[in-house]
């Protein structure tokens, strides 16, 4: 009689994929249960992260991309827009608010509507994209490396601060997240969830992935 191999006898089996449930306000955040760190099924609660970036294509306008990852940066879904360029009327009438409207409201909202896996938090590096916060209930935050934030703070970099209409900071992973003025409630909400993202997580890095993916899309599709 052959003895079973060690791996078989260890009883290791592929498990069904865990299903994450959604809440109304924050679709990516699995609701806490009894305040415990581990749910009944043994799976940890997760915070899905959305990384939103735009790039400008010479003469063709802007394209935007939204990457939804799990709490540790593994990609789940990616959406990007076709190029969009404001016309002259829009340029005149929107004036200084053109960029926030174009990037935040138009591109950001479209992408957020299109992703089937909704993030629990949207992170960007472009202050103009914070405008998206006025059109969604999902918290939108501006990521700054802690070193940058400290440098701004020490140098009293008013110009940099003025460009960021954000106020309260929350530390998630190795980044400081700033939120849109008037949406401090989001910061409070995130403070309760920040432990779901590993301390070592680099929230700047996925934004770089989005920029690369957008550049690849431009090269592959829109440059034809």
């Amino acid at each position: 009689m052959e003895s079973p191999s060690p791996a078989v006898s260890a009883g290791l089996q592929a498990a069904p994929l865990p299903v994450e449930t959604s809440t109304a306000g924050y679709p990516g955040i699995i609701p806490e249960r009894d305040g415990a760190g581990m749910s009944e099924s043994g799976q940890e609660k997760q915070l899905r992260l959305g990384f939103l970036e735009t790039i400008e294509i010479d003469g063709r306008g802007h394209i935007g991309g939204l990457l939804v990852t799990n709490h540790s940066g593994r990609p789940l879904e990616f959406q990007c827009t076709t190029p969009v360029r404001p016309n002259r009327t829009q340029e005149i009438l929107f004036g200084e608010t053109l960029r926030p409207w174009l990037l935040g409201e138009l591109i950001g909202s479209t992408l957020l509507e299109r992703v089937s896996i909704k993030p629990g938090l949207v992170i960007t590096s472009d202050p103009s994209l914070l405008e998206l916060q006025n059109h969604t209930t999902i918290p939108v935050a501006l990521a700054e490396a802690q070193n940058d934030a400290a440098a701004h703070s020490l140098a009293g970099d008013e110009a940099a601060s003025a460009a960021v209409p954000a106020t309260r900071c929350v530390r998630v992973g190795n980044s400081l997240l700033r939120f849109h003025q008037g949406h401090n409630r989001n910061a409070e909400s995130l403070e309760r969830q920040q432990h779901l993202v590993p301390e070592s997580a680099n929230l700047q890095e996925p934004l770089e992935r989005v920029r690369e993916a957008l550049a690849e899309t431009v090269r592959t599709v829109f440059s034809r």
């Binding site: 879904e77 076709t82 299109r114």
Partner: peptide, 11 residues
């Protein structure tokens, strides 16, 4: 709202 087309990828 100008309707925008999107390209999507679900991993």
């Amino acid at each position: 709202r100008i309707p925008l087309k999107c390209i999507g990828l679900t991993l």
